[in-house]
Design a binder for these strands. Structure first.
Lengths: 340, 340
DNA sequence: TTGTAGGCGTTATCAG
DNA sequence: CTGATAACGCCTACAA
């Protein structure tokens, strides 16, 4: 097969009759290299099969060109889409992305490794499902961090916010405008006082309050996670307890999907008997029966902003690095289809 | 915030009153270190906030601990699930995974970067959708490669195979056993003579042949890709052309999902009018209406095998590295639900 | 069981 | 515009 021999810059330099310094300049597109020299060097590089050793560069420069994207679970469509978007955005800036599932079904004992990974990266984009103290501690590792959530605690990480509360308010308002009065909220998550699910519930309550409708806690269904099966379970619970409903605000499209499934299994028509609205606008939501009305959180913009912020923190000039906490709100959009 | 000062092994050594060598031994869990010394070193490490510089280690040892997972598109559930599984498997072996979408909607001009990435990794797991010459060339970069497909060409990469042809045969046989006689095959992809979609079509034809049913090319629908929208388009095409069908073998669950959607929109009942079977067993397929009968390709096993093979090629002793081409077939399973 | 010394491939500094 | 030289932080013979 291929070589045991490692071709280095020095080797290339010898063949091209220049110094290693010049080879480095060529490889890094340094401006002031004679055209002639540049060509000679590239020829040597290609003919010798040389390739840059990024470990060496990293050691010398003190950075790796890698950022970590920490998401709960790649098998959830929202996070898969987000990862894809972040990788694309990072690529534009010449960064590599190490995806790290933090709460995947397949990973349980990753804590140990966590400590190591930070050494491999120049920055972290962290996407929390819930915010417990331990995870937050893990973030504070001496490299820039951008968190995809509302700001929390006394930490001063940068944030790119999904407007969970406002979007949830919008979704609920829409159901109200369609005449729903018994609206269930599905997806309050875990035992946290903060995090996306708490915000989404708050938005739901805001809308009810504005409409003068009293809160009925039986309509607020907790779930173990945000998978489809949780949506099924939530609706079953409502039906079992004979809680009357004419609308469902699901905190993710998967929950909505599961909810619609369970409703239809129980002989309810969507949207006639029960209107359903989701959150995320995953690709699949437009192919459900009926197609799902949902909130589009603008994933590409979120990803691009997160990467841009991180990039400026890591590689920007001093003035950028020293800037105070950056907080951006991403715009969202109500996508109306047939489920509500 | 945190430090400008970089703590090195030498610093730790000084504080712990040992040599850098000993610190290295401790960090790397070398066996022969006195308990007392070990503790002293760890204390120093923790109190000083030292962390290992992986670039330096990589430079010294000639490897990075990173493998690349090249998949077409993270937004496709199959590849998201696969990535999750590969990351989990890699974690068990202490490897980091750089996910690289090769044909994502969001990435078009990544060719240029491709050359660079190989320098950052010790090995590649490559998951092809189609096999064109250019992509194959790109693979041959001097580090071990494991390909998730049937072997091809004259290259001697290692392979972990999904049994596309056999599984597709099984799926089609099942529809036949349920009485279908006009079975459409949806998802022949691109203009290639090789690749998963070609194999799946072959399996479909095998089954028809075995059953003595003549091939009708109008039933074999090409698609641009394997997204839900392609499933919709394929069925619409069949219906528009008034091609009679009573069954659909879709080459992915997403195609099946789109197909069911289009069928139901056209007033057809699934499975009574048209039975539908998918391929992949994504989580969502059990929540469709009706729940989707499909093929489970055993993603966890595929991921684990691919990582294991790569690991032995990279870090194994010489005898393992020199072994000839490794080819493994992953088992699959027919999952029967209500769509067929 | 631990210390010493040297180099892995790059890039930055400093000349020229 | 290009050359020499010195680090970057770690690992590993070799020695003790």
């Amino acid at each position: 097969m291929s070589g045991v021999e490692r071709v280095t810059m020095k080797d290339v330099a010898k063949v091209a009759h220049v110094s290693p310094r010049t080879v480095s300049n060529v490889v890094n597109d340094y401006e002031y290299v004679k055209e002639d020299t540049r060509k000679r060097v590239w020829d040597a590089i290609n003919s010798m099969g040389y390739s840059l050793n990024l470990s060496a560069r990293g050691l010398r420069q003190g950075n790796t060109g890698i950022i970590i994207l920490a998401v709960p679970d790649l098998t959830m469509p929202y996070f898969a889409d987000l990862s894809d978007a972040v990788i694309a955005a990072a690529q534009k800036r010449g960064l590599y992305v190490l995806v790290e599932p933090t709460a995947s079904n397949r990973n349980r004992e990753r804590e140990a490794l966590h400590g190591m990974r930070k050494n491999m990266a120049d920055g972290i984009i962290y996407c929390p499902l819930e915010l417990n103290r331990k995870e937050i501690e893990l973030l504070d590792v001496g490299i820039p961090v951008t968190v995809l959530s509302e700001p929390f605690g006394d930490r001063h990480f940068d944030h790119v916010m999904i407007q969970n509360r406002e979007a949830s308010l919008t979704a609920t308002e829409y159901l109200l405008s369609r005449g729903c009065r018994r609206i269930a909220a599905i997806g309050l998550y875990g035992g946290q006082r903060q995090g996306p699910s708490v915000e989404r519930l708050a938005g739901y309550r805001d809308a009810l309050k504005q409409a003068g409708i009293p809160i009925d806690e039986r309509l607020e269904v907790r779930t173990d996670s945000w998978h489809r099966s949780d949506g099924v379970a939530a609706v079953r619970k409502l039906l079992d307890q004979s809680v009357e409903i004419d609308g469902v605000v699901a905190f993710t499209d998967q929950l909505a999907e599961g909810a619609m499934f369970a409703l239809q299994m129980a002989g309810k028509k969507v949207p006639d008997d029960v209107a359903v609205i989701g959150f995320d606008n995953n690709d699949e939501s437009q192919y459900l029966m009926p197609p799902l009305t949902t909130i589009d959180p603008g994933i590409d913009k979120i990803a691009a902003q997160a990467v841009d912020i991180l990039h400026s923190r890591i590689y920007g000039d001093e003035s950028e690095k020293e800037k105070g906490q950056i907080i951006k709100k991403a715009p969202f959009e109500l996508i109306i289809r047939q489920s509500a």
